[in-house]
Design a protein around this nucleic acid. Structure first.
Lengths: 340, 340
DNA sequence: CTGAAAGCGCTTACAG
DNA sequence: CTGAAAGCGCTTACAG
């Protein structure tokens, strides 16, 4: 059973497909097509269950109403929730979204960008992996609408939506200091991205402002491909028995680190917050039900997703629009992992 | 800067676009086009950074190499991980995937199916919400390739990939019985779906086989829109102070229930597993780091995703292929939430 | 071996 | 008010 096309409707009604197209696109009045004919067209379309072929439309108009989304990993709850918000906001505006997980791999994201371009997406929302500057720059050059989320490259003029990482880390660290922690560690990841640096900077500034000496041994940068073993080694390094300058708190820069970290800490038989206080970026489900629910820096995912779509659609509509750079504040949610 | 098309290449080289199309599709040899010309075409394509327009291709060939995926919620880690596997396997075969979250809402999934059909996807992978039988049946009627995952409708002939829910629940319940639990509750959700019934059936059969009387008061069915309050009430009902026939264990039929449940149990000051043993379907991160890491029924997500794509692509290639119905076994992972 | 032509299903100037 | 025609960028039978 072939799908019904505009032409089928036109022929059965003995009118042109121009007319059918006008009516079905709600331009009946604009072209002063008689109500009678309009009704006939609409009724027949419904009867034949006419479904417009969006790719034919896209080919003709150059607009597919599709957004390409590239994130690190949709199975990571941070991106899952963010993806969900983006999907929802996009749908509200009649856009579909094609999801791609880049695994922080610039080769992959490059391929995915090419693939999405071939699919004629109207624009991109990208959480760019490190070393993907060239790809992003080339989007700019080709005048393809895109907005970056979660990360950005200061040297490239882009639309982006990020959070105030410095401020968030500063507040988290200050919180630990206020509760009397002195040897605060920062566990982060070598994604060579400004946002990670900003987090560590905020952490250091808080220490400085409190007159606490910065000990570079307490700043641990893991490869972004870290697994349990890397974390395990690092945690042991920070709080191991032979260490006479043990850390008494850890600020995790990602929840992936945090979740793995908590597993290791438990395995070592250490108690949170007694032996070790903990704060982390992001707020996965896991943090609410673990031994000592985790105090977190929660990102406004709903807003990030919403803004990303809105900024992108605006750019699609107005290609000459100035780039928008939006920095959102985070929520600091105090639970039990820092003691009191 | 306009994108370069087949025609541009043809004109610059003074050949027909037929030829260019052949060469670029690797059919140079098949049509015995001279190596010299082949090379010229390929080189120029590279130089001009030619990107084939996939939607034009799709319009012409009737194949878009796109899969439509409809799941309940991509922010739910179960579907996030599953979606990831599907994306990955699809990419391996040159397919893209459009993600849609239906929120278990048949109205939404209906719209999403229509939208995806209009986008000319080659096939669907669907986790159908309850009351979506008609939509699924109509896909069958229209001969559109699709495969169901996680759930299925016994009365509709479909491709589907599910797990052996009865067996999984049976084993989990038996495990609790072996550890001496007598008053085992089953917390489930009123998704009027066979899979939920099978889970409860497996639970009941295990009780029967162990000679333990089934107490219907211990089977709690929550509305699928449940929030913390619903769970809270239910948990209190099961283990509240005034209850002289308290439950001593709970089998959660979904991890969403389980995560909320553990929050409530902790809030009530109850200890897992001392006061209450716990087993749950699915294995989100949260379960590994909570107070008492949770013993779970883990679904083989990698395999489900892989099979779903493979079965779908097979159906796309061979539209008359018989439907495949695949039931996979689950892993039972013992942690600490049941004691020993 | 290579090219001219038709056509996938739409939209949209243009003409009357 | 309505229609004939061109064209978006491809693929593919057909012809030579």
């Amino acid at each position: 059973m072939k799908k019904t096309s505009l032409n089928d409707i036109a022929q059965q009604l003995g009118v042109s497909k121009t007319l059918v197209s006008f009516v079905l696109n709600g331009k009946g009045k604009e072209f002063r097509i008689s109500d009678d004919i309009c009704k006939k067209v609409i009724d027949l379309a419904k009867e034949l269950n006419y479904q417009p072929n969006r790719i034919a439309q896209g080919l003709r108009t150059g607009k597919t109403n599709t957004i390409g989304l590239i994130i690190a990993d949709i199975a990571n709850q941070f991106f899952g929730k963010l993806g969900r918000e983006i999907e929802q906001e996009a749908a509200r505006h009649g856009y579909r979204v094609i999801f791609c997980s880049s695994d922080e791999n610039p080769e992959k994201s490059k391929q995915q960008i090419a693939m999405l371009q071939q699919s004629q997406v109207d624009g991109f929302i990208i959480s760019p992996p490190m070393n993907s500057e060239e790809q992003i720059r080339s989007l700019s050059k080709s005048n393809i609408p895109y907005v970056l989320i979660d990360r950005y490259f200061p040297e490239i003029e882009s639309n982006y939506i990020v959070i105030d990482n410095f401020d968030a880390a500063y507040r988290a660290t200050s919180h630990l200091l206020k509760l009397g922690r002195k040897r605060i560690a920062n566990l982060t990841v070598n994604l060579d991205l400004v946002i990670m640096k900003e987090r560590t900077e905020g952490y250091k500034q808080a220490l400085r402002d409190a007159g606490v000496e910065i000990d570079e041994n307490l700043v641990k940068v893991l490869p972004f491909t870290h697994d349990n073993k890397d974390i395990d080694r690092t945690i042991k390094d920070l709080v191991g028995k032979r260490n006479n300058k043990k850390a008494d708190a850890i600020l995790f820069s990602t929840s992936k680190l945090g979740i793995m970290g908590i597993e290791c800490i438990s395995a070592l038989g250490l108690k949170i917050p007694e032996d070790l206080a903990i704060v982390s970026f992001d707020d996965p489900d896991a943090y609410r039900i673990c031994v000592s629910p985790v105090t977190v820096i929660n990102q406004p995912l709903k807003e990030i997703g919403k803004m990303a779509v809105q900024v992108l659609l605006n750019k699609i509509k107005h290609p000459i629009a100035k780039n928008q750079t939006i920095t959102l504040k985070t929520d600091f949610i105090i639970r039990k992992s820092c003691g009191s």
